[in-house]
């Protein structure tokens, strides 16, 4: 059970990355490859808030969320909006992410920083296994976020509009939806959430400048397994990657953990090329 918890909490981190990818993907059919780096910055800001300034947890969360939202807004303006097509955005967002990694290294150095969590980093016993409180927090956060986003996309008009945009942005424009504004809002919200996520992942992964690239890859695998655009898929994909990684490391040796993850990815894509929850979208013209 302890091993499963370890896998699930690691998987929750990947699922959070996948959620970030998905929000931008749904809103603009493009990927924000700087998503994991945004989360990393969130973890660093959380560290600074906790350790350097000694702020209370709630203030730390708000600080991380606002800081990362601002960075994401800047990214949208300089790396997304001026770039017309989605393929090129893959490069510009990746470049922005690389820049963030570099800046993080300059500001916070290259040593991993231990980010504190709410209260002490205590372990609890649950259903015959042990896990840290921050690990439980990660799992709960990932699930709650996915459920909330799903409900938002089904119930709120702006959520419906986002899903509509992802299918046909011109048709959405003709229904009076301000497509550009909504795409920007989605970007800002991913930044806000990345800050929140950074607060939660920091205690698990530590804040380290290279964290971004490691998370980006696994988060993308989680997304591909789950299916692009599917939030439940991203959650399932994240947990699957985490569980496989944890079990492979335990039973086969840590050198096999990455290998097994990619093996699972290849298997899933061979059987269901659109991912577990993905849908093929045709469009008549």
């Amino acid at each position: 059970m302890t091993l499963i918890y370890a896998g699930l909490s690691l998987g929750a981190v990947y699922a959070l990355v996948a959620i970030g990818y998905n929000i931008v993907f749904v809103a603009s059919r493009s990927f924000n490859f700087a998503q994991a780096q945004l989360m990393t910055i969130g973890a660093f800001v959380a560290y600074t808030g906790h350790v350097t300034f000694g702020l209370p947890a709630i203030a730390v969360v708000l600080l991380a969320m606002i800081a990362v939202m601002l960075i994401a807004s800047i990214e949208e303006r300089i790396a997304v909006r001026p770039v017309a097509d989605h393929q090129t955005q893959l490069i510009t967002t990746l470049g922005f992410g690389t820049m963030l990694t570099g800046i993080a290294q300059l500001v916070w150095g290259s040593q991993p920083l231990d980010v504190p969590f709410v209260g002490a980093k205590g372990a609890i016993t649950l259903l015959g296994g042990r896990l840290y409180t921050f690990e439980l927090g990660l799992i709960v956060l990932a699930i709650v976020l996915v459920v909330v986003i799903h409900l938002y996309n089904r119930r709120m008009m702006s959520g419906l509009a986002l899903v509509a945009m992802s299918q046909d942005d011109e048709a959405a424009l003709l229904r009076g939806i301000n497509v550009r504004k909504l795409a920007f809002a989605a970007f800002a919200v991913t930044g806000l959430l990345a800050g929140l996520m950074g607060f939660f992942i920091g205690p698990k992964t530590f804040a380290v400048a290279t964290l971004g690239s490691a998370l980006a890859l696994k988060g993308f695998v989680a997304l591909a397994i789950g299916g692009f655009g599917s939030f439940y898929g991203g959650l399932a994909g994240g947990f699957a990657v985490g569980l496989v990684e944890a079990h492979a490391a335990r039973y086969l040796g840590s050198e096999f953990s990455n290998l097994s993850v990619f093996l699972i990815l290849i298997l899933v894509l061979m059987i269901r090329p659109t991912g577990l929850f993905g849908q093929l979208q045709e469009r008549t013209v």
Binding site: A161, V163, A164, Q167, A171, G176, V285
Partner: peptide
């Protein structure tokens, strides 16, 4: 403007499509 080629939001329900029609 109703475009050529029945450009509805295919993945969303009829009701959701109509609701989106009233977005403005």
């Amino acid at each position: 403007y109703v475009q050529e080629g029945k450009r509805v939001f295919r993945a969303q329900s009829v009701r959701e499509n109509l609701l989106l029609g009233g977005y403005s």
